[in-house]
Design a protein around this nucleic acid. Structure first.
Lengths: 200, 200, 200, 200
DNA sequence: AATGAATGAGGGTTCATTCAT
DNA sequence: GATGAATGAACCCTCATTCAT
């Protein structure tokens, strides 16, 4: 990579990081492209060299941040000594929830709508460079001692429930603060996982 | 109610209905207040007599439409001959899902984020005029032959899962079209309900 | 005065007083007629029964407040034991300055532009009901043991200098706080008065 | 200075001059920003590139026009053969009054309130480019054969009296047309100047 | 590739004034 | 006389996008 390419990449990354900072602090609607370029220290026209518009950079950020989240959880799982698919999946969910509890702006930004969508979009966009979260999920299922039916459905259901319920519980403490809600959530997740297990 | 009050109400309702039409067809961001008043046939200033801004009318619409949804489902339940809390709750969820399948603009509008929030906000705002959805839910639980623990948590979990998963399934047919996903969803809901049942 | 007339007068006075409050606290430009009528507790249309527009009520207020100022100073002079035209005029100026030091919103409202104009407008409008400030000034001159030339010019010059310089000195403490500026101001006023004295 | 900078300056000046024309003919309250940009032949957004709002451009205009006024009077003084501080100061005042008599819109625009304030603000803002009016005043005092006490106070008093009285006399011919009032005014100014002279 | 001045459509909001009740 | 809902012109200001340099 030449010096020019490096400079190019630096500009793009500056825009990326600055946009994230502003989106999480001021909200997307209140963030103007001029805010982003000003804070990033580049010219207005430069923005359009790398991104189509505000929503383009937002979508790319959501995908990126979601991948980071799942990827870090997956890495932590590998370092831990957890057995059983249900325990592993709940470990991942718990890791993500804990991260988001400490980072509410991030939670607000990706918001529950988009978790699964972003995860899925990993496949559609060509951006999965080795840390393909969804495949990692699937391999967890395959490695388990039990067999599972309709794995796609199972993973979808788990992520939707955890994402949607976790969002409200963390941000609004409704119906309970997340620490008190976790036992209920994880019990539900276990039941859902079990219901997909093929009895042999 | 005098003639003037009647006229006032007509204006407010014209704005309310027109805003809903435009929000669902063009989206909120692309709907200008001038669009609303023009189509509603009132002057621009009139809008500000009844609503603070675009987001005010949007929030009131979400609450209103969500209430309608739950209210209609509750009415249908009363006319049907359904026994058992699990069957009743699933009947309600199913009724709402079927309504939204036939009315995707509405689904898009209220979106999964807001279902439960809107439902809860029913209590906070003074807008529950007899058709108080949440209390109706609670009375279903009370009337059941079984007893249930942590009812708030149960209802929250059910609504979040159904809302979040239903949203994706209906709109994007992911991971399955809603008709194929329903069995999985309702099985999960049943498990969650059962897990709150107090064994006597 | 019948009950109806009394009620009428009360409404007009409520508007008058409320307008003054709002003009001095929020400024004239930022005060809407709707603000005035709301705070005064009357209907919007009622405003137009008594005043032509915002500037009509403002002008009437300036005249009224300026008259009050001079009238109170004249009354105080009568109660005091002051001799010599120069001492008397400076007593009046000093009384007004002291009042305005304690009431900066009033100073800001009438502002230096308008002091003399308002004083003069007393004659033009038919509103001088016995407390005619300008005539009172003139009679002070006549009663003095000395004779004066070009009395109109003298009074004008005095009021302009005191008003204009006092305004800056009180509000901005420029070039000195008013208490330090007073000796200079009063020395200048004395010189101007003396210069109009006819040596006999 | 590059081509771009030149173009920038031209735009800013076009706005500046057009705003002055409109403010003096229509008044500030009745001049909309859209009027200014339209007449200046630039886009609306361009206005906001150079000025914060209507009051920003107004303030800058007042400072600018006041400086011009004092600067021209100072230049004329240098070309004239006048001796004695009192004569010099009165020459300057007279020059300004004569200019304003011929240019009543300008008088109305800067109005008596703002003369001294604008003059003083010359120091605060960094806009004094060689033609620093206030310092010029001071050097006149220093060069005089007599010594003066409290020079700040003296200059302030002179400018306030001349500004305030001149304003009314020119615009309303009250209490006398300016040509008839001048002798009185200048007599008063002389007395004030003398009163600051240190007898040696 | 990078810049940033210029654009101008577009949207939100205010508010003096009217007039039917 | 008094009301206050309704009006809609007027205005401010933002900001995505372009394009000459």
């Amino acid at each position: 990579m030449g010096k020019v390419d490096e400079k190019k990449k630096r500009k793009k990354e500056a825009l990326f990081n600055t946009a994230y900072d502003l989106f999480t602090t001021k909200g997307i609607n209140s963030t103007a492209i001029s805010d982003i370029v000003e804070k990033a220290g580049v010219a207005k026209g430069t923005f359009y060299l790398y991104f189509k518009d505000k929503y383009d950079i937002r979508n790319k950020l959501i995908v990126h941040k979601t991948q980071e989240l799942f990827s870090a959880a997956g890495d932590a799982l590998e370092r831990a000594d957890i057995h059983g698919l249900d325990n592993k999946l709940i470990f991942i969910i718990d890791h993500i929830i804990n991260t988001l509890v400490d980072n509410k702006p991030l939670l607000n930004f990706i918001s529950k709508n988009l978790v699964m969508g972003a995860l899925r979009s990993t496949f559609l966009t060509g951006e999965h460079s080795g840390n393909d979260s969804y495949e990692r999920f699937l391999s967890l299922v395959e490695q388990d001692e039990h067999e599972y039916k309709d794995v796609d459905v199972m993973l979808f259901t788990i992520v939707e429930l955890a994402g949607s319920a976790g969002y409200n519980s963390i941000l609004y403490e409704e119906p309970l603060p997340i620490e008190h809600y976790k036992p209920f959530l994880y019990r539900s997740l276990r039941l859902i996982i079990e219901s997909h297990r093929v009895e042999s």
